[in-house]
Design a protein around this nucleic acid. Sequence first.
DNA 1: TTGAAAGCGCTAACAC
DNA 2: GTGTTAGCGCTTTCAA
Lengths: 340, 340
Amino acid sequence: MKKSQVTIKDIAKELGISASTVSRALKNHPDISQKTRDAVHELADKLNYQPNAVALSLKNSRTHTIGVIIPEIVHYFFSSVISGIEDVAYDAGFSVMICQSNEKYEREVTNAQTLLSNRVEGILVSVTKESDNFDHLKQFSRRGIPLIFFDRDAKEIEGDRILIDDIGAGYKATKHLIQSGCKRIAHLCGPQSLEIAQKRLQGYKQALEEAGITFIPEYVIDADNFELGKVATRQLLSLDTPPDGIFAVNDLTAIGAIKAVHNKGLHIPKDIAIVGFSSGRFSDITEPTLTSVDQHGYEMGAKATQLLIERIESEEDPETFVNHFIETNLIIRESSIHRD
Amino acid sequence: MKKSQVTIKDIAKELGISASTVSRALKNHPDISQKTRDAVHELADKLNYQPNAVALSLKNSRTHTIGVIIPEIVHYFFSSVISGIEDVAYDAGFSVMICQSNEKYEREVTNAQTLLSNRVEGILVSVTKESDNFDHLKQFSRRGIPLIFFDRDAKEIEGDRILIDDIGAGYKATKHLIQSGCKRIAHLCGPQSLEIAQKRLQGYKQALEEAGITFIPEYVIDADNFELGKVATRQLLSLDTPPDGIFAVNDLTAIGAIKAVHNKGLHIPKDIAIVGFSSGRFSDITEPTLTSVDQHGYEMGAKATQLLIERIESEEDPETFVNHFIETNLIIRESSIHRD
DNA sequence: TTGAAAGCGCTAACAC
DNA sequence: GTGTTAGCGCTTTCAA
C-alpha cells in the first residue's frame, strides 16, 4: 500500500527547474530569485512536501536521534524518566528511539546493536539486573557516541552517569526512623547484585553506626516486592525481639510490610514505623499514608538528556566524566510520624 | 567528538576488493568464494562493523521504524501500552520512535511531522484531550502510511482502531455490584468531555436498566481522582438514602472512596461495596483489596502493533478498517465480595 | 541566478 | 567469482 513520498525532484520537475535550485529555494538561500522561491514554496506546501530525514541523515551523518535502553517501561520510576528524556529531547529537536530490555541481557545486546545501526547520536542506558558483560556498550564510546548511564550503571565503563543518591537516601530514611524514636530498625533490601540495593543498605548501615546502634544481620532480609515484603515482615515480627521500624527498598515492599503488620494486629506507627522508597503513586493512598523517599525520575531523565545533548554538540572529547547524584528527599507521612 | 563509523568501503579497501563483494560476502551470497567470505566476515568482526541502517533505509525506502504518539508516558495504562508496542515491534524487527504529546494539540502536530520526516512506516496514535482538528493525521493515510488509533481516536478519520470496550466494562462493573446484592449503586464518573467517561457511564446505566433499578441522578458525581473521590463519597454518604455500592471511573477515585467510607466508620463491603477501574498496581495492595476492571493495556499495545505491522507488510490498501474492542475483565477482590 | 556533478553507505543489475 | 555502475533524496562545491 506504499505510495511514494514527494521529493525535491518532483517539485523540480513540475517547475521545470533543477533539484538544487529547489533545495536552495526551500531554505531561502539569498541567491535564489524571489519568484522561484515563492513558486517552490507554494508547490511544496501544496504537495505537502516533507524533507526526507533519512536522506539528510545519510548526507550529514547526523540523525538527530538519541537512543534509550531501559529495563522496563511499565514502572512508575522508569516511565517518569522516559518522560523527562522525551521532553528535553523534543525541545532540542531530537527524536527518541526507545528500547526495552525487559531485564534480559541478551535483549540489551540486541538493543545496543539496533541503536548503533540506526546511528543514534547518543545513548542513555540503564542496565538490566542480569548484565555483567558490557562489551556491547563499549562500542559506543569507541565510536565517539556519547553514552550516559542513568539509575543503573556498569562500573567498568567510563562515561557519564546520572544516579540517584541511594546511599544518602538509605541514610536519610534510616536516620528519620531513628529520630522518630525507633531503636531496632530492620531493612528489607533488594538483590545485592544490584548496586542501588547495595547502596541503600550501605546508607542504612551508616545511619545506624552514626547513631551508635549495633547492626543486627537478622534485621536485614532480601525482599523487594509486595509478596516478599509480607513474608519477610512476618518473619521479622516473629523474632524474639522484633524491630520497631522498617525501611523497605521500595514502596510495594513497604506496603507488603504494612499488610503483615496489620495482620498481626499491630499498629503503625505506634508499634512499628515504616518507610518506603518511592515507586509509584502509592505513598499517599495507603492506610496509613507511607513515608517514602522521592526519587525525581523526571528530573533524572531531563538532566541526563541535557548532558547527553551537550556531549553530542561538543566537538571535543569530554575531559572528565560527570558523576551526578540526583538528590532525593524524604516525604514524611503517617507511617512514621513521631511516635513518642 | 565524532569518530566516523566503519563502512563497507573500509573493509573493501583493507582487503583490496570491491565494496559490492564485501556486501555480498556479508550476506553470504553463494557466488562469493569461501575464502573471500571468511576474510570479510573476520575483518568485519574485528572492526566491529555495523551496517548503516540509515543508508539501507534510503536505498530500500524502508526504515523498519514505527512511530507512536501518546498523550503522556507516566501513566500506568499508557506505559503498559508502550510496553506491548515495544515487545511486538522488537520481535518483528521494528524500531519504535516515541513522541509524547503531553496532551497538547500543538505538540501532537509537531510530533506527526517529525515522524513523517523520519519516514516511519506506520504510526500508532492516541490523541490528546484537546485535539479537534486532525489534518496532521490525515497526511499519513494520504501517503499510504498506515495509522492505527489506540484508546482514544479521532472520529472523523478513517482507519483502524483498537479501543477498550468501556461500555461493556461499565456494564460489567455495575452488574457485578447488583449481583453482589447492592440496591443503590452510585457512580463516580469522569469528565463527560472524554468519550471513555461517557461510555463507562453508559454501561452503568445499561446495567441498572436491565436490572430494573431506577437511575438516580444524585448517585452520579463527577470525580476522577483520589481527592475528588473522597469528597464525592462523603457527599454520597450524607444523602438521606446513601448508596450501598460505588462504581468509580478509576482506581484512585475508588481508593478515595475507600478512605471516605472508612473515615465514616463504615465497613467495606458489608455496608458499601466498591469497584474501581484499573489504573495501576493499586488494586491488590489496598485494604480491602479492590475489585477492579482490568484494562489490558499491554494487550492493546501488542494488538495494535501486530495489526500495524500487518498493514505495513501488506501490499494492498485494506478493504475494511478494523474496529477492535479489547475485552476487559472484572477482577473480583475483597471490596465487593458477596455480601449476603 | 541557476545547473551539473559528486557523494553520504549500501545494493543489485549488468558486465566480464 | 568479482568489479562497475547507478541510484535511493539531499546538499554543496564548482561552473556557467
